[in-house]
Amino acid sequence: MILSQAIINCMDYKDTEESMYSIYAKRINGKFQPDSEALVLKLTFEEMEMKSIEIAEEKCPGFDYFLEMFVLKDFYEDLLKLEEFKTDIKRVERIIYYAEFDA
């Protein structure tokens, strides 16, 4: 899957009492891009206590932590309400910017 697909389909993932979803992605030229390779990992709460670098090394070498799904979903829902983010690509670009510089 690519990062833009993971972002656009974020509402398909439901955290439970036993686990949460996080996105890990590969950087292209040092940056996350809409077409970066991405994985959505279902992590136990014990795994969530680990450092994201340790999770990446164990479960998806070569990938970097992007965002926890619940954070992404909240931000995505807010963007849906704003006129300037009516297209998927605008929302994807804004979320990538948030993950890189604001999270």
Results as ranks from 00 to 15, higher is better:
Ala56Pro: 00
Phe70Pro: 10
Gln33Trp: 03
Glu68Tyr: 01
Met20Ile: 13
Glu37Phe: 04
Met50Asp: 08
Thr87Gln: 04
Cys10Ala: 15
Leu79Pro: 07
Glu49His: 07
Glu47Gly: 07
Ile53Phe: 14
Leu72Cys: 09
Glu83Val: 14
Ala6Glu: 15
Ser22Gly: 01
Lys31Glu: 08
Leu41Cys: 09
Glu37Gln: 14
Phe75Ile: 00
Tyr24Thr: 07
Lys59Asp: 07
Ile23Met: 11
Leu67Tyr: 10
Glu47His: 04
Ile8Lys: 06
Asn29Cys: 03
Tyr13Met: 13
Asp12Trp: 07
Pro34Gln: 13
Lys86Cys: 06
Glu46Val: 09
Arg27Asn: 11
Phe66Asn: 07
Lys86Thr: 11
Arg27Pro: 01
Asp78Val: 13
Asp78His: 02
Lys26Gly: 05
Ile55Thr: 07
Ala25Leu: 08
Lys14His: 13
Glu17Trp: 08
Lys26Ile: 02
Ile23Trp: 00
Pro61Arg: 08
Leu79Glu: 04
Glu84Ala: 12
Glu54Lys: 03
Glu77Arg: 11
Glu83Tyr: 10
Glu83Asp: 13
Met11Asp: 02
Glu47Lys: 05
Asp35His: 10
Ala25His: 05
Val71Thr: 10
Asp15His: 04
Ala56Gln: 15
Ile8Cys: 06
Thr16Glu: 01
Glu47Pro: 08
Phe85Trp: 04
Asp88Tyr: 05
Ala25Arg: 11
Lys86Val: 02
Arg27Tyr: 12
Phe85Ile: 02
Lys73Ala: 12
Asp64Gly: 06
Arg27His: 05
Lys73Cys: 04
Asp35Trp: 14
Ile55Asp: 08
Leu67Ile: 07
Leu43Lys: 13
Lys14Arg: 03
Phe66Leu: 01
Glu57Val: 04
Tyr21Arg: 03
Pro34Arg: 12
Thr44Met: 07
Lys73Gly: 04
Phe63Cys: 10
Asp12Gly: 04
Glu83Phe: 05
Glu57Cys: 13
Lys51Tyr: 09
Asp88Gly: 05
Glu68Gly: 14
Leu82Cys: 13
Ala25Ile: 02
Asp74Ser: 06
Lys31Tyr: 11
Asn9Gly: 14
Asp78Gly: 03
Ser19His: 14
Glu49Asn: 07
Gly62Leu: 00
Asn29Gln: 09
Leu82Tyr: 14
Val40Gln: 15
Ser22Thr: 14
Met11Leu: 15
Phe70Ala: 10
Phe63Trp: 02
Glu68Leu: 04
Ser36Val: 12
Glu18Lys: 14
Thr44Ser: 14
Leu80His: 08
Glu37Val: 06
Leu72Pro: 01
Phe32Ser: 12
Leu41Arg: 05
Ile23Arg: 03
Ile23Pro: 04
Ile53Asn: 12
Asp15Gln: 04
Glu47Thr: 07
Met50Ser: 11
Gln33Ile: 02
Asp64Val: 03
Glu46Asp: 15
Pro34His: 08
Ser22Lys: 01
Gly62Trp: 00
Glu57Ala: 05
Ile53Asp: 12
Asn9Ser: 15
Ile8Gln: 13
Ala6Tyr: 00
Leu43Cys: 09
Ile28Asp: 08
Pro34Cys: 05
Glu54Met: 06
Tyr24Lys: 10
Glu58Lys: 14
Phe63His: 09
Ser52Val: 09
Pro34Met: 09
Gln5Asp: 12
Thr87Trp: 01
Leu43Asp: 09
Tyr13Cys: 08
Asn9Pro: 09
